[in-house]
Design a protein around this nucleic acid. Sequence first.
DNA 1: CGAACTGTATGTGTGTTACCGTACAGACGT
DNA 2: ACGTCTGTACGGTAACACACATACAGTTCG
Lengths: 150, 150
Amino acid sequence: MAVRLHIQIDTLSGLPVYRQIMDQIKYYIASGSLVTGDQLPSIRELAQALTVNPTTVVKAYTELVHEAVIELRHGKGAFVASGYNPLSVEQQDKAVRRIARQLAVETAQMGMSPERALRIVEEELGAISSERAEAKAPVKLKVVASGSRS
Amino acid sequence: MAVRLHIQIDTLSGLPVYRQIMDQIKYYIASGSLVTGDQLPSIRELAQALTVNPTTVVKAYTELVHEAVIELRHGKGAFVASGYNPLSVEQQDKAVRRIARQLAVETAQMGMSPERALRIVEEELGAISSERAEAKAPVKLKVVASGSRS
DNA sequence: CGAACTGTATGTGTGTTACCGTACAGACGT
DNA sequence: ACGTCTGTACGGTAACACACATACAGTTCG
């Protein structure tokens, strides 16, 4: 059966809806709440729960397919893909460094101390890897999907 | 006289040109290469150096004005603004946490260890604050602006 | 088969991005 | 006063991103 996800759409953030869907699905996978082979909500099901158009969910899902995060099987559904993309160490470094620099600039801009910024990153990093460790055992996954539209 | 910046436009990144300009000017300010009162290149000057349309630079500059990062003075030029935005601690935390989470998800996705990710963040964070410390003394700023167009 | 689920494909409207050209208005040195 | 630097403000065009609506095609089960 299809897993029920707790996805929230923030219409005020300015971020595209399809990208918010992508990010939150990635988050579930990264934290271990979703693992290889798990079935995602169907396109229409998720679209209805979020009160967005099915094609918007299609956009999110197909993008995730291109990133080899999930698989789409015609007539069957969407599933978490098996492997990791074999990115080279250099590419990994570059990708992470890009985000890290953005974070560094923003913190400096608002006058936040580097120590505090680092502590926040440490928290988020730790949150994911700890959830990952105990995932799939007690946690059954959250309730229904819910959105907030104006 | 107007400072000469070393700004690079990557047409393959997919990021809007005006945003790349914004980000890199923010970086110079965050790192201390540009401080309050410094004059930026004029709109036409920067546009010509980057081989982009002046209106694109206008877009970048006016956005930076809205964020209170720079000031535009009619007939005189563009200058680094004085104050920081007085964002609340909660808002700061939320903004930084958003980026931190994205970083955590991406690293988990590609299988990078949290320790390594943290080390990279530490580097970028340190790079900015150290440049900030010794800035404006020896460093005179880079040479001419340069772009890369297809 | 046929109903009810699944993903897939094709248009359509709106907004953003970037471009080009032209014109206006403030600041400053000669 | 004049020329030349500065930012500001129009109009219009082309390409693309985003979300929507509708129709098509594969899978499964009674």
